[in-house]
Design a protein around this nucleic acid. Structure first.
Ligand SMILES: [Mn+2]
Ligand SMILES: [Mn+2]
Ligand SMILES: [Zn+2]
Ligand SMILES: [Zn+2]
Lengths: 149, 149
DNA sequence: AATAATTTAGAAATAATTACTATTAAATAT
DNA sequence: ATATTTAATAGTAATTATTTCTAAATTATT
């Protein structure tokens, strides 16, 4: 945790940003909730617990910066707000399966998609920078429980 | 065109919706611009050309209905508004390559992704209903033109 | 300590979408 | 055909996530 924060501090200052107390607090909450896909508002409320004076605009401003620096991923699910998750360096690049019933989010990594991406690049001479892949459907529990006979 | 409209009319009435003049005009514009990924507002302006009295709320209301009936696809690119495109029955299910420079949208069909999807379903016991796949990057022209030596 | 540059909190503005309301059009029954 | 019921519309108001603005506070620099 401490080392991780130092890493982020270095990354920030390399890009002429400072590690302010507010940024520190936001990062702390993100690190302690690696698995969570936060809305700006839920993150705001969580950070308020350790820093009651933080402003919502500060959350948005810094999520934007963190997103540029690839510290967080900005996710666009089919809701009317964005979600944010810490980029976990120990974990592979991953994508999401979103349950339409219970809203649970499963993750899968995409080694197979890499190949697909490579082929696409050739076929369309398209230089890929990023990709967003989402599957909507029903998770194990939800489609099992709906088979009530 | 005429037959296509009849098809939509049938589909609408099967779901207790009527083919109103407004719906007819919206569909007409969508059919005449198959390739276009409309914002609600651009569609509004286009429909106004043949029906100056149409209201923007009517556009939104019906895009929602058309989306339910799978007449249009609602697309969420990384912009702050949604895009809509007519579902072309003659074309395979497709996905998008979005150029970050010129905003051009290329399309690709996904027969290979089908296999991937099948495997995912098994691996996660996840029942897929829909999937959204987007690649962001630079199109042929844009990355060629940036190689100025 | 003085100066300059960043960053913040909080309020105000923005803008896409949705909800509301009174009116009109269409379908059905009489 | 006329009355009655229902669905759909235009136009406006409300909603809400996100952005922008501004004055004050913090941080870095001299
Ligand atoms: Mn995730
Ligand atoms: Mn398309
Ligand atoms: Zn579920
Ligand atoms: Zn391009």
């Amino acid at each position: 945790m401490a080392e991780l924060i130092k890493k982020y501090k270095r990354l920030l200052s390399q890009n002429n940003y400072k590690l302010t107390p507010q940024r520190n607090d936001i990062l702390k909450v993100l690190i302690e909730n690696k698995e969570t896909h936060f809305s700006a508002d839920r993150l705001y409320k969580e950070v308020q617990k350790i820093n009651p004076d933080i402003g919502l605009a500060t959350i948005y401003r810094n999520l934007e910066i963190f997103s540029e620096l690839n510290i967080v991923h900005k996710l666009e699910f089919e809701s009317d707000y964005k979600h944010y998750e810490l980029v976990d360096m120990d974990k592979e690049h991953h994508h999401h399966l979103i349950c339409l019933n219970c809203n649970k989010i499963l993750e899968f990594s995409d080694e197979d998609l890499e190949k697909f991406e490579k082929r696409l690049e050739k076929e369309y001479s398209f230089l890929t920078i990023d990709h967003h892949i989402k599957f909507y459907g029903y998770c194990n529990e939800c489609h099992i429980n709906s088979q009530e006979g």
